[in-house]
């Protein structure tokens, strides 16, 4: 691919994004009730485009069996068949339908990443809010433990733990959730710390409120906005980590369809100038970009920063 062709593609993509983003925003603003429409109108085109794509991913993931022409694992043809009418995107290194596997992978990869993030979030934010509210030795203990865990780079730590427990989907989910929860803990604690020093929390403490009510009514509602935005960021991070592990052959194991391992398995095609292996990689990239764009918009709104 020449440099100019690349450039032309880039321009086409940018125009496409703008067009889709604009259309979606105009459409949703028109059909939404007033307060929601007002918020949607503040969405930049990138965020609007991001919402369309995320929606499409969710639909594909939910209805994968209905959409996919073939099954996830069935060998339906020869190896590395080119794109044609039966196999729209050809077949993979074992002769399975590429398109079907791409569709099923939306379910597997995104689902696993989502579960992992949710797990990391529950663990990290509960511990973080607790540490900030209670303070004292619980805070010290949790914070020091997290400091130590964070002193080892995430990917390396994940590899180390996976060596110990062996590579399986469940193990990977647990290992990554544990490592990622340390980052969530840091953020949840920092956010809660800023809230704990507020006079209204002091007033609640002086009123004699219990720990549960302090966290659930006074602190959590005020910490929710940054935590939700962080959920998006963490999801991207977890999603990329899982994809990287799968690409390295240490994550989601065959025969489960998964974008990361699909790139790895079919990378040979690249040397023949076939872009098929880039499709699963692109699927990963597209979703992460879209989530990031939406999160960026939300963060920008939350910060209230009118630059």
């Amino acid at each position: 691919m020449g440099f100019l062709t690349g450039l032309a593609w880039l321009v086409a993509i940018v125009i496409g994004v703008i067009a889709i983003g604009w259309t979606f925003r105009a459409f949703t603003v028109a059909i939404s009730p007033k307060p929601l429409a007002k918020e949607l109108r503040t969405a930049p085109l990138t965020a609007s485009f991001g919402m369309v794509i995320i929606l499409i991913y969710i639909i594909v993931a939910i209805f994968a069996p209905a959409i996919a022409p073939f099954s996830e694992t069935e060998i339906v043809g020869r190896e590395y068949e080119p794109w044609d009418d039966t196999f729209l995107l050809g077949t993979d290194n074992l002769g399975r339908d590429m398109l079907s596997r791409l569709i099923y992978a939306a379910r597997n990869t995104v689902g696993i990443a989502f579960i992992t993030t949710a797990l990391a979030f529950i663990l990290g934010s509960v511990a973080g809010l607790l540490a900030a509210t209670v303070g004292g030795w619980i805070d010290q203990l949790l914070s020091r433990a997290v400091d130590v865990l964070m002193a080892i780079p995430a990917l390396i730590f994940a590899l180390l733990l996976l060596t110990i427990v062996g590579t399986s989907i469940i193990n990977m989910i647990l290992v990554i959730a544990l490592i990622d929860s340390t980052r969530v803990f840091r953020l949840a604690r920092a956010v809660a710390m800023n809230i704990v020093v507020m006079d209204y929390v002091e007033a609640a403490k002086l009123r004699g409120e219990g720990l549960w009510r302090l966290i659930s009514r006074e602190i959590l509602p005020n910490a929710l906005a940054p935590l939700v935005a962080e959920f998006g960021l963490r999801f991207c991070f977890v999603f990329l980590t899982i994809s990287a592990l799968s690409f390295l052959g240490l994550g989601i194991q065959p025969p489960t369809a998964d974008w990361g391992s699909m790139v790895r398995d079919n990378a040979t095609l690249m040397t023949f100038g076939d872009i098929t292996p880039l499709l699963p990689a692109g699927a990963i990239a597209l979703l992460t970009v879209c989530v990031n764009w939406v999160v960026d918009w939300q963060l920008h709104r939350a910060s209230g920063l009118k630059e």
């Binding site: 440099f3 790139v263 990689a281 990239a285």
Partner: peptide, 15 residues
Amino acid sequence: ISFPEFFVAYILIFW
């Protein structure tokens, strides 16, 4: 930031 490293790497190889 959102691109997995292997995606960036393969695109560069391709390009």
